[in-house]
Amino acid sequence: MRNLASLLFAGGLAFLLLAIASQLAFGTPSMRVGAEILAVAPDEVGAANLVTAVLLGYRGIDTLGELAILFAAATAAGVVLGRRHANARRDPPGGEVLRTGADLLFPLLLVVGLYVIAHGHLTPGGGFQGGVILAAAFFVIILAQPTRHLRHSLISWIEGLAGAAFILIGLWALVEDGDFLAPLLGQGAMGELLSAGTLPLLSLAIGLKVGAELAGIMAHIAEAEAPDA
């Protein structure tokens, strides 16, 4: 009975979604702001990757709010999981091959993550993608050796400093230019590594913050007490 009702619900939902979606006109832009940004962004921001230009230039406050949500989620996960007992059971460490492989992979992942962060305004990539890769680098180590500790105080410091740097750059722009998070420092030549004003700095701050938060969340989950079974 309950399954029948659920199936009816799903069928109705699918019908409604299809009815709405059949009204959409694909291929024609549903709003004009995209075309406008495409026209003015190369001159105003100077970043080759227009997605990053929108993310950090035109929607910077939105990105700040998104960082705040991620920060709240990471903090809440840490509070909910709490501190483990000193004598709680730990997972056994991985084998020799796994540990050596993790040690070899760690610097490579760090380099890839930093590269993706640093070139976010030129090629696909940026703070979020690079931050996730950085977090994965630390997590490979934790998975291979569960007995090794990640220092939560250090992670919190990196997280806090990166977040403060993002806001400080925004306030600096507010003082200089009159707009919060307005691009500063000149645009430079498009396509150079040091171009697009403050965008690479903001990208670096986001990358460090996202990486530290996700690594902290995963370390908390990894350190949660395992059931006896």
């Binding site: 991620l70 989620a73 996960a77 996700l214 995963m218 908390h220």
Partner: peptide, 12 residues
């Protein structure tokens, strides 16, 4: 990215 944060909180 928000989705993965929410997912981690749900797992906790």
């Amino acid at each position: 990215v928000i989705g993965v944060g929410v997912q981690a909180l749900a797992v906790a």
